[in-house]
């Protein structure tokens, strides 16, 4: 029996995470990750969700009709008629992190439009969380604004911050204020790398405010699209004085992976899929 035939043997579930900037999907077959997709979020949440799911299925070589259970998450989940269930991304990030690293008890998630501090137990259940409220400060969108100001690609911002020789103190309260401060600093002749280091620290400070409420327990995992930014990882480690687990799987897919893990659990519970041993594997 070929690999593809194994995959379409029946035990196929998927998680779809339609966020504000990116849509992600992970496909699980027989309890194992078989494929994933990552595309920019379009204007139509429903179409974006279906499209990213198809990307993930294509990467796994699985036909759409083989999928037995879908969990949708992220802000686009309200338009997800294709899903069997919707779950908030907070629960999905917890489940996804637990799936990857069962020893994780704290998650820092920085997505496109919000940031979250999540505490979880050994089963991946959320025990407490805090989110920023309706403000772009401390989010991926904040970094996007800054990449525009510096005319630097978003993915190069972190490296720019890492090359700083000193750190400019910046406001952590408001994206627009920081943009104004940045423009003044550029006009004054400050090195872009030092300004970037200051901005990354400002975001890390913003995040640390969330942890004052929920607390931190090791191991700490950094999820979301911004987790790919090495400068951000360094700043958070410095501000929070913690070590962050080194990711072995794309951290931007954590929410979709968690959704898929929940889909798998539900599908097994409802008898739609058969439990395999070991139950879930990376």
């Amino acid at each position: 029996m070929s690999d593809t035939e194994v995959k379409i043997s029946g035990n196929v579930v998927a998680g779809v995470d339609v966020g504000s900037l990116a849509a992600k999907s992970v496909v699980i077959v027989d309890g194992k990750v078989a494929g994933y997709g990552l595309i920019p979020s379009g204007f139509n949440s429903e179409e974006t969700g279906k499209s990213v799911l198809q990307h993930a299925l294509n990467s796994a070589g699985i036909p759409r009709e083989a999928v037995k259970y879908i969990v949708a998450t992220g802000y686009g989940r309200i338009s997800a008629d294709y899903a069997n269930k919707t779950v908030t991304e907070i629960s999905c990030h917890a489940r996804g992190a637990n799936f990857l690293y069962p020893s994780v008890r704290t998650i820092i998630d920085i997505g496109g439009q919000d940031c979250k501090a999540i505490r979880l137990d050994s089963s991946g259940n959320v025990v407490d969380f805090a989110m920023n409220d309706k403000c772009a400060a401390g989010t991926g969108r904040f970094l996007e604004v800054m990449s525009n100001v510096f005319k630097v690609k978003l993915e190069d911002l972190g490296d720019l911050a890492l090359s700083a020789d000193s750190l400019v103190p910046m406001s952590s309260t408001c994206t627009v204020f920081v943009e104004s401060e940045t423009i003044s600093l550029i006009a004054r002749g400050e090195k872009p790398a030092n300004i970037q280091a200051g901005i990354h620290h400002a975001i890390a400070n913003r995040i640390s405010g969330l942890f004052s409420r929920v607390g931190i327990e090791s191991d700490v995992f950094f999820s979301g699209g911004v987790a790919k930014n090495k400068g951000m990882r360094k700043s958070i480690q410095e501000v929070l004085k913690v070590n962050i687990v080194e990711p072995t799987f794309d951290p931007q897919l954590t929410g979709a992976l968690g959704a898929a893990a929940i889909a798998w659990k539900n599908a097994v519970r409802e008898g739609v899929c058969q439990e395999q041993q070991p139950a879930l594997q990376k």
Binding site: T88, I90, V127, K134
Partner: peptide, 12 residues
């Protein structure tokens, strides 16, 4: 967005 926070709390 507000409902999302409330829903996440209820899930928790």
């Amino acid at each position: 967005q507000s409902e999302n926070r409330v829903e996440a709390f209820i899930e928790m």
